[in-house]
Structures are given as C-alpha cells and as structure tokens.
Computed example of a mutant assay.
Amino acid sequence: MDGVLWRGSQALPGMSRFFETARSLGIRFILATNNASKSGAEYLAKLRGFGVSVTLDEVLTSPQATAAYLARHAPEARVFVIGEPGLAAELRAKGLQVVNEQPEQATHVVVGWDRALTYDKLAEACLLIRRGAAFIGTNPDVTYPSERGIVPGNGATLAALRVSTGVEPLIIGKPQPEMMRQAMARMGGSPENTAVVGDRLDTDILGGQNAGLTTILVLTGVTSLDEARDSAIRPDYIFQDIGAVADALQQANT
C-alpha cells in the first residue's frame, strides 16, 4: 500500500478512482503490504481517513501472513518480537505466545519494521538466534518510502542480525510466494487470473513473478522508470500511478 496508494499521510493520485473502478467492475482485490508496523484494523482506519471503505478480509499484512504461517507450522511457538505493536497483536490473535518479557523462553525470533528499535532489542535477538531460535523476517524491504524520503526498512534490521549471527532469516512477505498464495486463497484466485500491483521491483514485482502472477509496476514509490529499465526484474506493465491502472482496467472492460 505504501508507495502505491499513499506516501505517509498523503494519498497518491488516483487512489479513490482505483477502488471505485474495481468495485464497479467486480474485480476482487487484496491489499497486501510488507509494512509490518500496523495491524489490519489500523489499515482499515487509515483507508477510512482517505474516504475508502474496505473489509478486514481485503487487507493482508506481512504480520498477518507471518502469524498465519506460524500458526500452521509452529502453533506452540514462543516468540520474541522486534516490531511495532501491530505485529505482536497479530501473533497473539493466532494464539501464539509473545515472550518479550521472558526472552529466554523464546523458540522463535520474528523481526518486523520497528521505528523504536534499540541496540538492546538487536542484542537480545542476536543471542537468541545464536542459541538456536528460529529466525523469521516479516519482510525484506531494505528501504521505506516516507514523506521525508527513502529511509531504512526492515531489511536493514534483518541485515544486521544476519551478519551478527551468520543465519539467514525465513522471509514470509514479498518476494517470497507465501503471502501471494495466502492472498489468492482469500480471493479464490489463481495465478492465471491474478495480477500484483506494486512500486518495488525487488519485493512486489519479483514476488509476483515467484508466484506466477501478472506484474504491474507503478512509479509513485521506490522504483523510478530508469531503474525499471535497467533492472533484470521486468514487470509485465508499467504505469505512472494507481489512477492510470484504474483507467486501463476501465478501458479493457468497455
């Protein structure tokens, strides 16, 4: 959503038109985001602030996808969390234990974007991973498109832990296909009839390709047109913004 629908507190061009077009054409969608700082309910509230109404089932965050993955594969996990309150809330909602107050009990370390990150949190996570705790990253985005400009993202935190532990994290969000598969399952979609729209080549577009989807890049976030032209990761389509995507959908269905 960040860099596609909005940047910070500013709606990007054509956001409302995209939702109006999708609803009028009966196009199902999931708003899938790697941003691990908010819960699904918080995203609904933000969208309402822009005058857009969606349901909770139409939002899939990397914390939700991570919680669903752990609930399926490690339901007894005791989790030490680096991240903001939305991440811990999603883990608890799936019945998982968050043990930040007793970190020595942790069997898993889950790392999401944390704007209150401290050295103590990093050190605790490093020690736990070195002792054998499973290392999971909600998403690998090394940067984040803020209102102030491009700033460090969760991938920067993962890099610090990867270097200090020698352990590669299991990534749940894009570009790994797990999150895309969860989104398609919610919609009843398949790779043949599903497209991904995103602003990043290394997560959104590569993630769509890894899941076998049609890929659409918009130029309102991280990736510029020059970067897209020079990259080995090639989207199927490139549009200036989400409004141009809405216009193309409308034209294709008239």
Score class of each variant (00 low, 15 high):
Met1Pro: 02
Gly8His: 12
Gly8Cys: 07
Gly14Arg: 01
Met15Tyr: 00
Phe18Ala: 06
Phe18Cys: 12
Glu20Arg: 13
Gly26Ile: 04
Ile30Cys: 02
Ile30Ser: 01
Asn34Trp: 10
Asn34Gly: 08
Lys38Arg: 15
Lys38His: 14
Gly40Glu: 01
Tyr43Trp: 04
Leu47Lys: 05
Gly49Thr: 01
Phe50Gln: 03
Val54Leu: 11
Leu56Trp: 09
Leu56Tyr: 05
Leu60Gln: 05
Thr61Gln: 07
Pro63Asp: 05
Ala65Val: 01
Ala65His: 02
Ala67Asp: 05
Leu70Arg: 04
Leu70Val: 09
Arg72Trp: 00
Pro75Ser: 08
Glu76Pro: 09
Arg78Phe: 09
Arg78Lys: 10
Val81His: 09
Val81Pro: 09
Val81Ser: 10
Ile82Lys: 06
Pro85Ile: 00
Ala88Trp: 01
Glu90Leu: 11
Ala93Tyr: 09
Gly95Ile: 08
Gln97Val: 15
Val99Arg: 07
Glu104Asp: 12
Glu104His: 06
Glu104Thr: 11
Gln105Arg: 15
Thr107Trp: 07
His108Ile: 04
Val111His: 11
Gly112Leu: 01
Trp113Val: 11
Asp114Gly: 14
Arg115Thr: 15
Tyr119Thr: 05
Lys121Ile: 11
Lys121Val: 10
Ala125Phe: 12
Arg130Phe: 04
Arg131His: 13
Ala133Lys: 05
Phe135His: 09
Ile136Gly: 02
Ile136Trp: 08
Ile136Asn: 02
Thr138Asn: 00
Pro140Ile: 08
Val142Asn: 11
Val142Ala: 14
Tyr144Val: 01
Glu147His: 06
Glu147Trp: 09
Glu147Met: 11
Val151Glu: 14
Asn154Glu: 10
Ala156Tyr: 08
Leu158Pro: 00
Arg162Cys: 13
Arg162Leu: 14
Thr165Asn: 03
Gly166Tyr: 03
Val167His: 01
Val167Met: 13
Ile171Glu: 06
Pro177Gly: 09
Met179Tyr: 00
Met179Asp: 05
Ala183Thr: 00
Ala185Ser: 14
Arg186Cys: 03
Gly188Arg: 04
Gly189Trp: 10
Glu192Gly: 12
Asp199Ser: 06
Asp204Val: 06
Asp204Pro: 00
Thr214His: 12
Thr215Leu: 05
Gly221Asp: 11
Val222Ile: 15
Thr223Gln: 06
Leu225Ala: 07
Ile233Ala: 13
Arg234Cys: 12
Asp236Arg: 05
Tyr237Gln: 14
Phe239Ala: 02
Gln240Ile: 14
Ile242Asn: 04
Gly243Trp: 07
Ala246Ser: 11
Asp247Gln: 12
Gln251Lys: 08
Thr254His: 14
